[in-house]
């Protein structure tokens, strides 16, 4: 346990360093983009005087490094600041959107993780069979298509030809829970098709990798059933690599779903971030990036902790 605590502390320290570096890169990246929010909002017809006045009002006349230090100082005190575009509190703006993103990610994960593990275990059990090949072909095909293409195919079949699900996932705070689930099911299915192949193939490979081990031979010679050997003897030892791939895919479900959000007009954080970049609304972009980077750090930490918990050598030292 002491070991886990030490690792968690180290990871948090490194995580903060990562966040700091990310914030620097984002800040510099936005500064390097041509134009700023004043020009974006006022449009091409604005005179240089109005643009300058607007900049002064937003505080953009201050040199970049001072603005960055100010932002960092406020951030450390938990104040994300206000959006430049609409003056709303960023925490409020993002909180709602991030909640939506998480909801979609959790729904997609709840479908894809059990599905991938089951398919992977079955593929390992019936390896080189027709089932194994079929699962591989289907999952690899679905991962090979661009996300938006998968999304439109699903919309075509499940929303247009057979109108089972809505093609637009417009939810708000007021939407009841099961209604929400129903509305996000199509985007969640799209995401499932995109992530399931990775997890399924890693599960299959990690298990098959162990099948030549002496303890698997031993389990065979104890006369256990093949299913029991895979589930009880191979799977627990294959968990570490599987957990890592699952967590990377969970991170992707939270961070990398902008395209799917756009297709389904889903009010998630990714869409907000893309909009804010085009508006040069720096504080919002910064805050979103911090949340995304933080998600990665936390999920990777979670993967490492789970890997330790599933390894008796580390959990029960001699």
């Amino acid at each position: 346990m002491a070991q886990i605590m030490k690792m968690v502390a180290q990871r948090f320290a490194l995580g903060f360093l990562t966040l700091f570096v990310v914030s620097l890169i984002i800040f510099l990246g936005i500064e390097l983009l041509p134009g700023d929010i004043a020009e974006e909002i006022l449009g091409q017809g604005a005179t240089p005087e109005t643009v300058a006045a607007f900049r002064r009002e937003l505080g953009l006349d201050v040199p970049a490094h001072i603005r960055y230090v100010e932002w960092l100082w406020n951030m450390l005190q938990g104040d994300m600041g206000r959006s430049l575009a609409n003056k709303r509190e960023i925490s409020e703006l993002i909180g709602l959107r991030f909640g939506n993103t998480l909801f979609l990610a959790v729904t997609a994960a709840a479908i894809s993780v059990p599905l991938a593990l089951t398919l992977g275990v079955l593929a390992a059990l019936y390896r080189y069979s027709f089932y194994d090949r079929a699962v591989n072909v289907v999952t690899l095909s679905s991962i090979s298509f661009p996300e938006f293409f998968v999304a439109y195919i699903l919309i075509f079949f499940l929303a247009v030809t057979y109108p089972v699900f809505p093609s637009i996932a417009n939810i708000s705070d007021a939407t009841p829970f099961w209604d929400k689930v129903y509305k996000v099911l199509l985007p969640a299915l799209t995401l499932t098709l995109v992530v399931v192949a990775h997890m399924m193939r890693m599960t299959r490979a990690a298990i098959i990798n162990l099948l030549a081990s002496p303890y698997i031979e031993m389990a065979n010679l104890k006369g256990l059933s093949r299913a029991r050997i895979i589930v009880k003897h191979a799977l627990p030892n294959a968990l570490a690599p599987i957990i890592n791939v699952v967590v990377i895919n969970l991170a992707y479900l939270i961070v990398g779903v902008v395209v799917v959000e756009v297709v389904f007009v889903y009010p998630g954080l990714g869409q907000l971030m893309v909009d804010s970049v085009s508006k040069r609304d720096l504080p919002v972009v910064q805050a979103s990036a911090m949340i995304f980077a933080g998600t990665y750090v936390l999920l990777n930490l979670l993967a490492d902790i789970l890997s330790i918990l599933t390894n008796p050598r580390l959990l029960h030292p001699r």
Partner: peptide, 8 residues
Amino acid sequence: AAAFNPAH
């Protein structure tokens, strides 16, 4: 050492 399953 190799024939016992390390997980159980």
